[in-house]
Design a protein around this nucleic acid. Structure first.
Lengths: 150, 150
DNA sequence: CAAAAAGTGGGAAATTGTGGGAAAACATGG
DNA sequence: CCATGTTTTCCCACAATTTCCCACTTTTTG
């Protein structure tokens, strides 16, 4: 179960070293085999391969005659790329995915339960500001969140 | 049950020593394992690990296709970081969380029942002023508070 | 006032992050 | 189909950071 935030850097070759605190659990859950794909919010999603397998099944089971489904399949399935963790605990991000998420140097890795999100740092901080403002403006909380006492 | 307010200082490495009066109850409730995350008011929330567990479960059970849910998951789960109390009764605050809450040196720790809030001192004092002003301006009491006598 | 407890600072070992070179694989053009 | 140039992969070595201690100062307590 992944959670927490990490600032990290891509090197000139587009490699990114995984935070030490996740190494064991990544090794345990997928033996270093990750699947990376894109998200509509212009970040990347990083799944342990077996986790991705589940999502992939679900996606492929949907009726592809539906436009919205088809769109999602193209985005998620279409960009899903397997990446192996190397001997120095790094992964190499494929150029097309780097470009999609505007990743050049400063990045942010966010634990989100069964996966990570990987953001360009600047983008992440702008979005976070926006979310916080939104959250403070909201007078009415959606029903799903009402019972959540934090 | 945590309550009360404490002024305290971060050292140059970002460490903060926990007030003596909470030590026993922190030790009892989580054996020194705390989870720290962010709040939309730009402070940090400090939970004993088992307390956080409950919230985490609730958060992850929500449907992440919902925008508002996704936002909350990114903020709360995304920043949740486990911190161990060290041999000198200190915790090390991870740089991304320190930055988020503008914590440099002077901080305020506030007991809030099942958790603590940790504020930058200056921010805390400004906010407190503002809340008091707001409270005095309001003529009508919100429904949730109508029956409260203090 | 003495003794204990709490708070603070900082050094050194261990771990982690980073850069880059050389070998291998791949692509391109003749 | 080979030769050449480019990209990718693998590996090693160094730099930076983090963690773990220890020791000193300050405050509290009896």
């Amino acid at each position: 179960m992944f959670q927490g935030i990490n600032d990290l850097n891509l090197d000139a070759k587009g490699r990114m070293s995984l935070p030490a605190r996740y190494r064991d659990s990544i090794q345990a859950s997928c033996e270093g085999s990750l699947v990376i794909t894109v998200d509509v919010d212009r970040c990347l999603l990083v799944y342990p391969a077996p986790e991705w397998q589940v999502i992939q099944q679900k996606l492929m089971a949907l009726p592809s005659i539906n436009k919205q489904v088809r769109r999602l399949q193209r985005l998620l399935l279409g960009h899903a790329t397997e990446c192996e963790v190397d001997a120095n605990h790094r992964i190499l991000l494929p150029p097309p995915l780097r470009n999609f998420a505007n990743l050049t140097k400063h990045a942010v890795l966010i634990g989100q339960g069964n996966k990570f999100e990987l953001w360009d740092q600047e983008t992440w901080e702008k979005m976070r500001e926006r979310w916080i403002k939104e959250e403070n403006k909201l007078s009415d909380i959606s029903e799903a969140l009402e019972s959540l006492s934090i």
